[in-house]
């Protein structure tokens, strides 16, 4: 399982990559693997205000549907429009081409509630299959 060192993680298997005031958001390798082949994704709209841990997107695979939660609070500044026709990018490249959206996060302190890579790795290893 791939857990890049430069990201922050939630217990619900979302990741955030911080670049200045912007956070890129997606779901982890563990999440895409448990879902299986992803067939559909419903993303938030640019301009939408999100609250940390609140519902922000839906992801569907052949066999399951899941809700995705915002890792941080802030305003959505852009979405990965490629996912509409190519949701398999989430399976193929969960941390890069399969990112969900970008947001301008509003509260620096919220980062403390997220896990770093070693903590997430340990967390996932502790989960029963």
């Amino acid at each position: 399982m791939n857990v890049p060192g430069n990201l922050l993680y939630t217990k619900d298997h979302e990741w955030a990559r911080i670049e200045g005031k912007t956070a890129y958001v997606g779901i982890t390798d563990y999440a895409q693997h448990s879902l299986g082949d992803i067939t559909f994704v419903d993303l938030p709209k640019a301009g939408e205000e999100l609250k940390q841990s609140s519902f922000c997107a839906t992801v569907e695979s052949v066999k399951a549907a899941s809700d995705v939660y915002a890792p941080l609070s802030g305003k959505v500044t852009g979405v990965n429009s490629k996912l509409a026709q190519n949701p398999e990018l989430i399976n193929q490249s969960p941390y890069d081409q399969g990112y969900f959206f970008m947001m301008e996060f509003s509260n620096e302190a919220e980062k403390a509630k997220l896990m770093d890579a070693p903590a997430y790795q340990k967390y996932v290893e502790g989960l029963a299959e």
Binding site: D12, H13, E14, S34, K63, A64, A65, S66, D67, V68
Partner: peptide, 10 residues
Amino acid sequence: MVLRQFTQEG
């Protein structure tokens, strides 16, 4: 991400 539902294949 939280699993909302599973469809069992029959």
